[in-house]
């Protein structure tokens, strides 16, 4: 499945997902937010940048505008772009709200949502949001996690510490009529 030139799947290193979930857990019950930068046009998220939630809210997030300018300039200088823009929902499902859809302004980004409503299992889903239309895409993990490797060394089970749940049912929801 393709949307424009983009392959509709998020391929991301397991360690980056772990760092995003750790950030979301740390800021819970407030929403956490951030970016994963990658080389322009590569669609490869490489550099995790946790951002301040300027709203410090359990139901809303906003990048601090000054921090955002600094980070966006840094990406520009490094020939990077925001490949992933993520935030957490702390009491509800990880699905884009109408607010999320209204604000989605990076057409090349994967919008990753993490729900921390369950203390043990982080729910993770990824979406494209273009012109008010939401398309869910699968999340494909690459690489081995540091935690899993440590766990494997300790008790022989490489998946003992996994606590992620990925929603991967492709679905398209058109919110255009509600704007």
């Amino acid at each position: 499945m393709r949307i424009g030139r983009l392959v509709a799947v998020l391929t991301i290193h397991r360690e980056i997902i772990e760092a995003i979930v750790a950030h979301a857990r740390r800021d819970h019950p407030d929403e956490a937010c951030g970016v994963v930068a990658g080389p322009v046009g590569s669609d490869a998220p490489a550099r995790h940048i946790p951002m301040e939630n300027a709203e410090r809210s359990t139901t809303f997030y906003r990048f601090d505008s000054t921090e955002q300018l600094r980070v966006w300039r840094e990406m520009d200088d490094l020939d990077e772009e925001p490949v992933v823009i993520y935030h957490s929902h702390t009491a509800t499902e990880p699905y884009p709200s109408r607010t999320d859809i209204s604000y989605a302004g990076e057409p090349n980004a994967h919008y990753l949502l993490v729900s921390t409503r369950d203390p043990q299992t982080a729910e993770i889903r990824s979406f494209r949001i273009l012109d008010g239309q939401v398309s869910e895409e699968p999340v494909q993990l690459v690489g081995e996690s540091m935690d899993a490797m440590r766990s494997y060394e300790e008790n022989g089970d490489p998946h003992a510490v996994q606590s992620f749940m990925f929603g991967q049912s492709p679905a398209a929801v058109d919110y255009e009529c509600q704007r």
């Binding site: 929403e31 937010c33 951002m51 709203e55 809210s57 359990t58 139901t59 809303f60 997030y61 906003r62 990048f63 505008s65 955002q68 300018l69 966006w72 823009i85 935030h87 929902h89 702390t90 009491a91 509800t92 884009p96 709200s97 607010t99 999320d100 859809i101 209204s102 604000y103 989605a104 302004g105 990076e106």
Partner: peptide, 9 residues
């Protein structure tokens, strides 16, 4: 820049 914001609300 596009403002980056949103949330469950």
């Amino acid at each position: 820049l596009p403002a980056v914001a949103g949330g469950a609300f």
